[in-house]
């Protein structure tokens, strides 16, 4: 594998750490805002802590999966580019496709013979500019959608109690069935995760244990990955 030396340039490291700092700062400001508004929204400090802990627990499995993919791409893109593009803003599937398209237009192969500093610059530039489009459109659309959202709530508050559920169920059904169609192992993984989740929900309802609800997604994901390992 051919790794261009420029991938570890101090400037790239500084920019990568800069993105981490920005997300850290945003999280800090948001957490403070959430704490201040919690009681007005009928939320106790305990519930706020539960929300934080549950969110963190659920993220463990997916974060480790990202780490595994990121580590395998280190020799291609170098640590700073992997941290920002694969780890944060983008996703492994988008970034690798973007990188391959860029490499192809330059007539080289990632990690291949012609993959030098110049080629990496084009690949990294393409990933970053294409990935930036998501942020640009979020910056453009979110304020518009937010205004529409407020107007709808003012007219009929009932609407917004239905919209998120309908949107999420249809999205997860679509994404889930797309995965299930890929192979028998995908099917086994998906079904195991769903079944374990149903069982944990029944257990949480029967014994009225809050901690089961907090851990249920994490446990179900681990069980599903276990099933994938067995089925492979």
């Amino acid at each position: 594998m051919n790794t261009p030396p420029i991938v570890n340039s101090p400037v790239l490291w500084a920019a990568a750490l800069g993105v981490f700092l920005v997300i850290g700062l945003q999280s800090f400001i948001y957490l403070r805002a959430a704490r201040r508004a919690a009681s007005a929204a009928g939320m106790t400090p305990g519930e706020l802590r539960t929300a934080f802990r549950t969110g963190a627990l659920v993220a463990v499995g997916p974060s480790l999966a990202v780490v595994v993919v990121a580590v395998s791409l280190l020799t291609v893109f170098g640590t700073p580019a992997v941290l920002v593009r694969i780890g944060l803003i983008g996703s492994a599937s988008f970034e690798t496709v973007a990188a391959q398209s860029a490499a192809q237009t330059a007539g080289i192969e990632l990690g291949g013979a012609g993959y030098d500093d110049r080629a990496f610059a084009l690949v990294f530039f393409t990933m970053s500019v294409a990935g930036a489009a998501w942020m640009v459109s979020t910056l453009v659309f979110t304020p518009i959608l937010s205004r529409a959202d407020r107007r709808i709530r003012a007219v009929n508050p009932m609407v917004m109690s239905i919209v998120p559920g309908a949107a999420m169920i249809s999205a997860f059904t679509y994404l889930g069935l797309t995965e299930v169609n890929k192979s028998a192992v995908h099917l086994v993984t998906f079904v195991t995760g769903a079944l374990v989740m149903v069982l944990l929900h029944l257990a949480a309802t029967r014994w009225r244990k809050a901690w089961i609800r907090e851990w249920s997604v994490g446990v179900a994901v681990a069980a599903a990955l276990g099933a994938a390992a067995v089925a492979l």
């Binding site: 499995g61 559920g165 997860f172 099917l187 993984t189 374990v196 929900h201 997604v217 599903a224 990955l225």
Partner: peptide
């Protein structure tokens, strides 16, 4: 690495169940 390649179906199964359970109607 191969097992973690199945993280997407692994998380979508439980999450679909959760989304169905938490819907209002």
């Amino acid at each position: 690495t191969e097992v973690f390649g199945y993280i997407v179906p692994a998380i979508l199964g439980p999450v679909l169940v959760q989304a169905v359970l938490s819907a209002g109607q």
